[in-house]
């Protein structure tokens, strides 16, 4: 019996062979070589880490990074949920149209969409002109080169990454389950919160996680739509690598980001009842 189990285990592990080989050679080895520079460049020791943590600047940048990622994740889920729901609900007409809009937005170049937002949001931009035209505001709003610019631009880009996994998990939910609950006398509200949302949780979880970690490392959109006072970590790293060739500090800050993210991930795994891998049906 134990022999059987272990051969089963080997079979499972052999499925992981391609990914381990690929990521090992092309990702982990080069990454480790680079990250080692955080303690060897310019001289051996923890000097780079002292330099980063001694000033409040780096902590603020790290804080900004997580703040933006959190806000973007929340907004993307809030806006993505009704879309995914409608796409599942009306697969032919309206839902089909919504799905096409989502796909169309994903297919449009990221750089182009970001630039489009820049022109839309700036104080002499279209949005401000319209708002002033209809008399809602008399002074142009500052929508870009600050936190709101980054949040609008990034939420926009992340919505499809919530909608698609969420819709995929919604479409596997058996409508009869909800029907049954309602027949048993549950109100629409409690069916929604007690049954529908929990069933959607894996989809929300994977979408939100994807958006959150993507946002942490995002460079292009914050660099174009953000202001410098809410600089995020990737931009700081670019500055270190590009302007000052300071790979030591750059790798040190990347190591800290990776460590902090993994800790958060770990806590999340402990708190969250669903694990990201194990099935919530059966086992």
């Amino acid at each position: 019996m134990s022999l059987l189990l272990s051969s089963r285990k080997w079979k499972d592990l052999s499925l992981l062979f391609p990914i381990c080989l690929f990521l090992g050679i092309f990702f982990l080895i080069p990454l480790v070589i680079l990250l080692i520079k955080s303690v060897t460049v310019p001289s051996f020791g923890l000097g780079n880490f002292y330099e980063l943590l001694a000033t409040s600047t780096y902590i603020k940048i790290l804080g900004n990074t997580f703040l933006v990622a959190t806000l973007v994740t929340v907004f993307a889920v809030l806006l993505g949920f009704p879309l995914a729901w409608c796409i599942t609900l009306f697969p032919k007409g309206w839902g089909r149209f919504l799905l096409n809009v989502v796909l169309l937005s994903m297919w449009t170049s990221l750089l182009a969409r970001t630039y489009s937002w820049l022109v839309l949001l700036q104080s002499s931009g279209v949005l401000n002109k319209i708002l002033m035209g209809i008399g809602l505001i008399d002074q142009p709003l500052e929508l870009v080169h600050n936190l709101s610019g980054v949040i609008i631009g990034m939420t926009y880009i992340m919505i499809p990454f919530v909608v698609l996994p969420l819709q995929a998990s919604m479409s596997t939910i058996d409508p009869m389950v909800l029907q049954a609950a309602s027949i048993c006398g549950a109100s629409a509200r409690s069916v929604f919160f007690k049954i529908f949302i929990p069933l959607c949780k894996p989809g929300i979880f994977s979408g939100a996680l994807m958006v959150f970690v993507m946002s942490l490392g995002y460079y292009v959109t914050p660099a174009l739509l953000g202001g410098v006072s809410n600089m995020m970590l990737p931009e700081f790293i670019v500055q270190q690598i590009q302007n000052f060739l300071n790979w030591g500090v750059a790798s040190a800050s990347a190591s800290i980001l990776i460590a902090v993210t993994l800790v958060i991930f770990y806590i999340y795994l402990k708190v969250q009842s669903d694990s990201p891998t194990s099935s919530n049906k059966g086992s």
Partner: peptide, 12 residues
């Protein structure tokens, strides 16, 4: 996904 793309870019 977590490692900033800049770092991956330089490393690879």
């Amino acid at each position: 996904m977590i490692v900033p793309v800049v770092i991956i870019a330089v490393a690879t």
